[in-house]
Design a protein around this nucleic acid. Structure first.
Lengths: 194, 194
DNA sequence: TCCATCATGTAAGGTGTTACATGATTGC
DNA sequence: GCAATCATGTAACACCTTACATGATGGA
């Protein structure tokens, strides 16, 4: 037994979400969009394909729920093998890959373009960061209101949110400084040419 | 003409690096490893394949440099078409995709695992962040010592570094708080069972 | 003698994204 | 009448990683 039947991070995300309750592919996609979106996500087609494979490999069990007035759904739940695979993955070291960042790459090469180009990217980035911050703070408020079982799971979700919010706030500070500097540069250039 | 001959971010990174000087695939890989690594990178095979395609599509020109005592190298330089493609890409909006984060995903699901598991991940993460910080600070010091042409390009590389360092510092603060909390929890659990 | 550096590639396989296909119900 | 929600999938492609292949020079 060299390695698990589950393959990528998405597989384990799905196994993780199935802890303690059965879900359909559709449910899983909704949870992704609502709660983990800022860390991981996938298109629905990928999720359905993944569930099919996890089922074929015995990590999840499936049953079809017949519904009236709406399409039937396939409910998946963790099998003991799936639970084991998940626990093994949780204990395994995180491979430390660099994180790709399309925004920073573009900024990195903006030296040869006119300052307005970089400024536009920075301003757009600022708006995006603020939107993410708002979204994250809402999620935080929702999570803090939550009273239920799974308090321990909640603590770790809060920690992930804390990471994200801290990163976004730091990002915003750098962005604001950069925008101020660039605006000054643009203004100086305009004055010089006048 | 719907879109450029260049495709992904890697294509444009390579075009960006080729601004103002010819480079071989090997050179490009070394620059990636030394300076952009924390934002983007690629395996050498991917870089060679990419260069070949960019050449076939006329965005770079190639010449073979015969060397003595070491293998010949293929030097690539930007063509006017490549320069245009790069400028177009620089001006284009950054598509805002979520950033995948394997560490946070794992942490997110650590609620159902023993606290020691999460603690191990956090401590390892801390070490990794400190290493990246050290690496980034060195790069910053090197960049600040740099005296040459391309000062404008340098300013943007410094900005990218500034983003990275700020994110890492924020990350470290959260990590330290989380480690302290978890250690306390583990200690309390040990005391209760005693 | 063995390893690192210089230098370029092929081949295979895995992962992820996008577009397409289908079809009922509910609310505006 | 139109769009959104519920629900599941196939197919094609684009992208990325890993392993393999080759071979000289120079230092420990």
């Amino acid at each position: 037994m060299a390695r698990d039947a589950a393959r990528g991070t998405l597989d384990y995300c799905i196994l993780g979400l199935l802890q303690g309750r059965p879900l359909s592919g559709y449910d899983i996609k909704r949870i992704f969009d609502r709660t983990i979106d800022y860390i991981w996500n996938a298109g629905d087609s990928q999720i359905y394909a993944c569930l099919k494979r996890l089922h074929a490999e015995g990590l999840v069990a499936a049953e079809t729920l017949i519904q009236v007035g709406r399409p039937n759904k396939r409910l998946y739940r963790l099998t003991p093998a799936g639970e084991q695979a998940l626990q093994r993955w949780l204990a395994e070291r995180v491979p430390d890959r660099f994180a790709k960042n399309e925004f920073l790459v573009k900024l990195f090469f903006c030296g040869e373009a006119p300052p307005a180009v970089a400024l536009a990217h920075l301003e757009e980035h600022r708006a995006s960061v603020e939107a993410q911050l708002a979204h994250g703070r809402e999620a935080l408020a929702r999570a803090l209101r939550y009273r239920g079982s799974r308090q321990r799971a909640l603590a770790f979700q809060l920690l992930a949110l804390e990471y994200m919010l801290a990163a976004l706030e730091a990002d915003l500070a750098v962005t604001d400084r950069a925008i101020a500097r660039l605006r000054e540069e643009v203004a100086r250039a305009a004055q010089d040419s006048a």
